[in-house]
Amino acid sequence: MSRLNVNQILALILAVFSVIFLIGAYQIPAFALPRPVDSDMFPKVLGYSLLILSGMLFLEKPQERDIPDADAQAESARLPLLLRPWSRVIITAIAIAAYALLLEPLGFVLASTLLSVGLTIYYGYRRHAINLAVSLGVVLALYLTMTKFMNVHLPPGVLPI
């Protein structure tokens, strides 16, 4: 562990963010017509407020619950790399991003069913038939309600539904 505590590290990150935000705020152009308070005032006030608050956070003592649990970390190290808690978060995030990108080419039904079935297997559920039935059932029900009854257009994709 470094000599900085959790709050101090967070404070530094927030301070950097507020400086970047302020730089952005100073680039907001003035409006052609005179305004008593132009578009740049609120961003500037907020940027400085966050800077001050991060200073205060730097000085605040971290509470116990803010420090990540060391036991849990040791325990997770025993799991295979792909099944460790953080790996699960990262892989889920990647799956969501992939879903977003494939939604329109593959279509709603196929992409959603793939995501649901795939992640369920990955999270450790082994009864594939139930998995497929529930996932496909929910997705199809949603798709049909939306497109047929609610007139909301969802990407049909490659499936001929």
Partner: peptide, 20 residues
């Protein structure tokens, strides 16, 4: 319901909520 399945379905619901 198996937790694994539940989590996946919650994800799907979030996505539709936002995409819709």
């Amino acid at each position: 319901l198996p937790r694994a399945l539940l989590l996946s379905l919650i994800l799907i619901f979030c996505m539709i909520g936002v995409y819709g």
